[in-house]
Design a protein around this nucleic acid. Structure first.
Lengths: 111, 111
DNA sequence: CAGTATCCTGCCAGATACTG
DNA sequence: CAGTATCTGGCAGGATACTG
């Protein structure tokens, strides 16, 4: 899945999928769009994700230039995640998903 | 994953994810947004999906009201898939993904 | 707190055979 | 042509224990 530069598909939609289609990445984006978060905050907010997988997907997003990881050399340690401009530019996709999900739920409740 | 009405999450973004985050659904949408397609056309266009999985994900999308499946009682048989209005209303999400993927590739090629 | 290190589960892909 | 049925296997993701 990674080494993205080598495997970027021709279709731009597939390119986007390659970068954000893993199970938790959209929820990571949702949470970071409102600002910098610590690892523990993300884990709590996202829900049922395991530490290993959350760490792994955060690292991939860092490698792809979507977010920045900052380690504060304190005890206990503190690690913060912040979207880059490229990561933040995914906001229109999340907004569209938010709008559609809201409409869908409204329609379903009317049936 | 299915029985969507029972498990719709509170967050609208998660609701949308529940319906389109399976591996091939976004590509199915991409292909059907340009019009009705036959099963074989979808399979060819999407690429490496197996018959079994493509059938399964199309059925789920039908159950969720995103598309309609039409069987023509001919020999050889013909089955066509068409987006419903609800399915078509996902277009803004796909458009945003197209735009972002195009930009991302442009940025990557400049490095 | 924010991770590694292991081991394990289950989804999905691949291949093949069969049918209306 | 467009499926269904069955078996196999790889790998993303999950559970748990341990650590700087």
């Amino acid at each position: 899945m990674q080494t993205v530069k080598k495997t970027l598909p021709a279709c731009p939609v597939e390119t986007t999928l390659t970068l954000i289609s893993d199970k938790w990445k959209v929820l990571i984006l949702r949470d970071l769009l409102t600002g910098t978060k610590r690892f523990g905050e993300l884990k709590k907010s996202i829900g049922n994700v395991s530490q290993k997988v959350l760490t792994s997907q955060l690292r991939q997003m860092e490698d792809n230039g979507l977010l920045v990881r900052t380690v504060y050399p304190e005890v206990p340690p503190r690690v913060e995640y912040t979207l880059t401009d490229v990561g933040y530019s995914l906001k229109p996709i999340l907004d569209a998903m938010w709008d559609w999900g809201t409409e869908y739920k409204k329609n379903m409740s009317e049936i």
